[in-house]
Design a protein around this nucleic acid. Sequence first.
DNA 1: GTACGTGCAAATATTTTGCAGCAGT
DNA 2: ACTGCTGCAAAATATTTGCACGTAC
Lengths: 131, 131
Amino acid sequence: MTITPRIHRMTKQRQIILDVLKKTESHPTADWIYEKVRQEVPRISLGTVYRNLRVLKEMGDIQELNYGSTYSRFDGNTKPHYHFVCLDCGDIMDIHVPVYTELDKDAAEETGGKVEFHRLEFYGICSGCIQ
Amino acid sequence: MTITPRIHRMTKQRQIILDVLKKTESHPTADWIYEKVRQEVPRISLGTVYRNLRVLKEMGDIQELNYGSTYSRFDGNTKPHYHFVCLDCGDIMDIHVPVYTELDKDAAEETGGKVEFHRLEFYGICSGCIQ
DNA sequence: GTACGTGCAAATATTTTGCAGCAGT
DNA sequence: ACTGCTGCAAAATATTTGCACGTAC
């Protein structure tokens, strides 16, 4: 009586959602992705987009971000990296600084728990908004 | 024609909401705060709780956290500190490691923007859930 | 007295879900 | 063929807001 793990199929919808996320530099919302995918699959529903985003996240193909707002944004870049959030225009950008994995050790020691990963976001005004 | 800044009054409701947040060690949701405050002000509305949480946040008296879920949590501790989020039980705890303000300089250099602050959360399994 | 705050209820916004038919493996 | 996936629409969740009255300053 072993648990059979759920098998994921690669449907046209799922593939296109993944492609859209891998191709964009931005960190789009579910609705933005929906509108984009609709150009190729006009009858796709928003529910399907949400269901696929959840599966893709579970499979580790994408990341979900929910910083500073009531809705989520998604990131097709799964390599560890940090983000910069502009407090003015709300834009989120990738930051190319080395990832400090040693931090996890300190945190694990401090809490007595096991640290899997960490997330770091910088908040401020982006170069475009400074003038 | 100067802009007159909004003046905030300290009402009974606002004071109690702030007190509740300053007293707790947890990082409660708006609804938890609502239930707690209701013990002292039975007729308070959830709308009032949300309005006050926004004002208190704007005044810098509390922090809003929205990590890994669709709803916000609030933190009465405004001193810079990091968080640990348990992927099993969902609990959020404070971490007592020094805050690395130098990180902000690197990020500002990399983006060309101005960094005000950063947030760092560690994700893993807390000591209570490890067994 | 002024204008910010409150309670109430309705509205928004975002995400999830039940269901019957469709489709990937 | 089996079972996961889809579109559709309705539901669930979390948060915001219009309004008339109340209250801190």
